[in-house]
């Protein structure tokens, strides 16, 4: 943890060091993951009450199976 921050020592004020490859790759991966999550959420649709088929869960505690919860806009 003792390493020092890197310093851009170039003199030309008009040019910037290009974005490192790991940042671009990570950004693409994060974007793909977010898209997959959004598509999954949209594909599942809104929660339906008591999908368990057991009929023995009180209405106030009903959750859709496989999703485990309803948590607002994140809702799986």
């Amino acid at each position: 943890m003792a390493s020092l921050p890197e310093v851009d020592t170039r003199e030309n004020p008009g040019r910037y060091t290009p974005m490192p490859r790991w940042v671009k790759v990570s950004g693409v991966i994060a974007l793909v993951v977010m898209l997959v999550v959004v598509i999954t959420l949209l594909a599942r649709g809104p929660h339906r009450p008591d999908m368990t088929g057991g009929g023995d869960i009180p209405a106030s505690n009903t959750v859709a199976p496989g999703s485990g919860h309803d948590s607002g806009w994140w809702g799986h």
């Binding site: 057991g54 023995d56 869960i57 959750v63 496989g66 999703s67 485990g68 919860h69």
Partner: peptide, 12 residues
């Protein structure tokens, strides 16, 4: 609530 219903809470 039956154990199977609790299990139905899923893998979330």
């Amino acid at each position: 609530t039956s154990p199977s219903s609790i299990r139905a809470l899923g893998a979330s």
